[in-house]
Design a protein around this nucleic acid. Structure first.
Lengths: 220, 220
DNA sequence: TCCCTTGCACTGACTGGTCAGTGCAAAAAG
DNA sequence: CTTTTTGCACTGACCAGTCAGTGCAAGGGA
């Protein structure tokens, strides 16, 4: 059991000392993440963010140096959460002797959990992650690295344990897995929100485990 | 052999009567697609687009009713190209008696080709496709539908031909495949642009065909 | 041959509005 | 008393969209 509390379900708490200031910052994060996910960074105004957070505009600038800085901190904060959650899922499986393949499967589940819990945050990453020439480009590089590395590590261990062929291309496979879960989950949220997470997870597992092509399940 | 000419390699020609006006519109598309991919829609100004296209601002409004309309036409134009190219790849394989699995593989290749030829266009779709509350939402729904349907059809035929398990979830698998190719390709372009397309294609094929997990090649 | 007209495509200065960020005095909170 | 928040007026840069006017090629009349 981890120590983090889910709070309101929109954006999680920080390392969370309980000062008044932190509460304000959290409210601002919550407001910003949904607005920016919907409208994009540039068409979201600071006045809107302040209003949705129930705070005066001056307060935004008392807490963050600029709109850009607010956004960067949001990005960093969010990715830390995802990486931690993926890592925890993988560790939990391997610690009790599960295979690396099982760990991968657990990470897929953790990814789906994350996306369904913080859809706005996810949309926001997708929208920004492959852009170039933006102020927070370098922040995003770090952020991406942090998440992908977790997946790559498990893949690498799996190859070492001979659970996976040593022919696989680790970085590329990690990206592909990431994309598979990401896009499937976003489509799920946008177009079939009624389906259960187990359902979606099962479909992705099947695809990954190669039970899709070849009808191999019918063999003896 | 199709009749379309690749033009400059940034954005393809339309059905293209060769009037002066069409040439201008094409220049504007080219300029807009790269700028918007880099900076996003809202932070790209009409002045920038005009300048990069080498025309006056008024010309933009002579050719398009508004900045929004310019963008919508860009989206529609681009997706038509992708859908056509995927369909052509699939047809080409099945017409000469290849399996549906081979057709899927050909579509992956076509997807990679497309993304490497029009990276800016691709970035732009990714950034906008899962946003809500935007002016061109309905356009995007249509656009998405158009591309995903092509993949779903091949999957459905594959199930009918008993090349794929009837247990698979067709819409979700289509999304997942789409995402796999998309994210892998974007990462390839952004972070390892030197790798050959064959290399990337091979890695994705391996993942899809289930040759990744289980080391099945070693079995007795 | 020259001049005038017509209409299409394009031009770029200008307008009206928007928005990030500031400054400050006074009120809450702790 | 210090830290944080409020409310609000203000500035200056920036930007979508407008519009009166230019350039130019084709036609037609004399």
């Amino acid at each position: 059991m981890s120590t983090h509390t889910p709070e309101s379900g929109t954006i999680p708490s920080m390392d969370s000392s309980n000062t008044r200031r932190d509460a304000t910052r959290r409210k601002l994060f919550e407001a910003a993440v949904t607005l920016i996910a919907e409208q994009g960074f540039s068409s979201t105004t600071v006045d809107e963010i302040a209003e949705r957070a129930g705070v005066a505009k001056g307060t935004v600038y008392y807490n963050f140096a600029s709109k850009n800085v607010l956004f960067e901190e949001l990005l960093r904060h969010g990715i830390e959460l995802l990486a931690t959650s993926l890592q925890a899922a993988a560790d939990e499986v391997t610690d009790r002797g599960g295979s690396r393949i099982d760990a991968l499967d657990a990470m897929i589940r953790a990814g789906l959990d994350f996306i369904s819990r913080y859809p706005a945050l996810t949309q926001l990453y997708v929208a920004e992650l492959w852009r170039t020439n933006r102020a927070w480009q370098s922040t995003l590089m770090v952020v991406r690295e942090r998440a992908i590395t977790v997946v790559e590590n498990v893949l690498r261990e799996a190859v070492e344990q001979e659970e996976l062929s040593e022919e696989i291309d680790i970085p590329l496979t990690a990206s592909a897995l990431f994309g598979m879960v990401l896009v499937a989950a976003l489509d799920w949220q946008s177009y079939q929100p009624d389906r259960s997470i187990d359902d979606v997870h099962a479909a992705l597992s099947r695809l990954l485990q190669g039970r899709v092509s070849g009808r191999s399940a019918e063999g003896p």
